[in-house]
Amino acid sequence: MIEVWLVVALVGVGTVAIKSAGPVLLGGRPLPPRLAGVIDLLAPALFGALIAVQTFGQGQSLAVDERVIGVAVAGLAIWRKAPLIVVVILAAAATGIARAVS
């Protein structure tokens, strides 16, 4: 439980610091374009990694299981422009059902 609170505290302090840095310190100078280009790709890179590990990671090993079905259903729902909450519920339901029948 101490780990949970450490994460909550450190992420909170870090995020507040990042969010306030520009407005509090800077007079609105634009970022150098190269740095802006790198920061622009940070979120996609991290999301790609999170998706891969959440879908195939099983502790220290990789596994293909019912989660793949859920993620595939999510992909379909996103493609059909479903709202995020619907995407999440459909993915969980598909995986849950696949587990129940297998």
């Binding site: 979120a43 996609p44 999301f47 790609g48 999170l50 998706i51 959440q54 879908t55 019912e66 989660r67 079905i69 859920g70 993620v71 259903v73 999510a74 992909g75 996103i78 995020l84 995407v87 999440v88 519920i89 459909l90 993915a91 969980a92 598909a94 995986t95």
Partner: peptide
């Protein structure tokens, strides 16, 4: 599987 679905939805 909801986690992966959510991150896909954000990506």
């Amino acid at each position: 599987a909801a986690f992966a679905a959510l991150f896909l939805g954000l990506l």
